[in-house]
């Protein structure tokens, strides 16, 4: 088979990224322009500012990527683009750039779901083995996906409200930990003990999650302790919060693996970097004889390498979009 070079573009939140991947396995170049320092001042991503930054960065990122990969647009076989879910204004910049490149260079346009990208980031580590369960945990997503074969997705469950990463950031804010608080909260959790009593959210037989109640419980707890004049032991509260989150995610993930008789688990998304979650899943998967894959840290955050990789399999499957492809803030993976 002839090699296929896919140029991927990702701009769904606050990272402008472009990547060129060969045959869904070999990364030639990936450029990521992160806006994290800009949004830090606002305690979270400001959509309008994110959109403005994407426009400034998009062609610079594209150029750097082609230069680093030492290829030209003539060498590219198809353009893969994140069309959703994400911030609509942010998505549109990558999308219009991708559509323009497809138009002026007469290349196929491959629509890629952001979550499919996160899952396929693992393919850059080693080829996915099917069937598998993918646990997607990030600032925007908390989902369990069953994959029977390449590019087939069945959603088993997802969050009913806040995504797990979003919950981490909000709890971090309550504890006065600077944005993005998730990673720091994880670090603090390792320095404390789970001594605070917090409710386990949506502790049922479904594969769904709910984190807004847990977030409220933390806020109430902090408030009540302050009223009583008690000092919050931040490390202990972080440990207590993390234990509840990690336990419920681990429990539901292991149950999905057992019920579907699947021996492969891959983890994807920004929260895949969470040490507490890594430790818990590693222990449980060892017990159950499950093959577990975590993406390397560089693929945990948003990047276009994962989009170009997923795009290759979508391309092989025959997925194509025309120039009327629109961005979607929320869209199921199917």
């Amino acid at each position: 088979m002839k090699d296929a070079l896919i140029l991927g573009i990702e701009s769904s939140c606050d990272e402008t990224s472009c990547s060129i991947v060969k045959n869904g396995t070999t990364e030639l170049a990936t450029i990521i322009s992160s806006q994290i320092d800009i949004h830090k001042d606002y305690g979270g991503v400001v959509p309008e500012i994110a959109s403005r930054e994407h426009v400034k960065n998009i062609t610079i990122v594209l150029e750097e990527c082609l230069t680093e990969a030492k290829v030209t647009m003539d060498d590219i076989d198809a353009i893969a683009i994140t069309y959703g879910p994400g911030l609509i204004g942010s998505l549109l910049i990558g999308l219009e750039a991708a559509k323009t490149l497809a138009f002026i260079h007469n290349k196929p346009l491959i629509p890629v779901h952001h979550i499919a990208g996160h899952i396929y980031a693992n393919n850059l580590v080693r080829p996915l083995t099917f069937p598998l369960i993918a646990l997607v945990v990030s600032g925007g997503h908390t989902e369990l996906i069953y994959m029977k074969e390449n590019y087939s997705f069945e959603k088993l469950g997802g969050t009913k409200d806040d995504a797990v990463g979003e919950c981490y950031d909000k709890v971090a804010r309550v504890l006065d930990i600077p944005y993005p608080g998730g990673p720091l909260l994880d670090k603090m959790a390792h320095e404390g003990n789970a001594t605070y009593d917090l409710p386990t959210p949506l502790n049922d037989d479904s594969y769904d999650f709910s984190f807004s109640g847990l977030k409220s419980a933390v806020i109430n707890l902090v408030h009540n302790e302050q009223q009583r004049g008690n000092t919050i032991r931040k490390e202990d509260l972080a440990a207590s919060f993390q234990k509840v989150v990690v336990d419920v995610i681990t429990k539901k993930t292991i149950r999905a693996l057992n019920n579907y008789q699947v021996k492969n688990l891959i983890v994807a998304g920004g929260v895949a970097a969470n040490r507490g979650l890594r430790e818990s899943l590693t222990t449980e998967c060892q017990k159950e004889g499950i093959d577990l894959t975590f993406p390397p840290m560089k693929y945990c955050t948003d990047n276009a390498a994962m989009i170009a990789t997923a795009g290759f399999y979508a391309y092989q499957k025959g997925d194509r979009a025309d120039l009327s492809l629109n961005a979607k803030s929320s869209v199921p993976l199917s």
């Binding site: 959109s51 594209l62 323009t100 490149l101």
Partner: peptide, 19 residues
């Protein structure tokens, strides 16, 4: 329109840069 301007500008700068 903020979104509107970005659509035209993104198309135009991508077109001009790439070709």
């Amino acid at each position: 329109s903020f979104t509107g301007i970005r659509i035209g500008v993104t198309i135009a700068k991508t077109f001009a840069w790439s070709l």
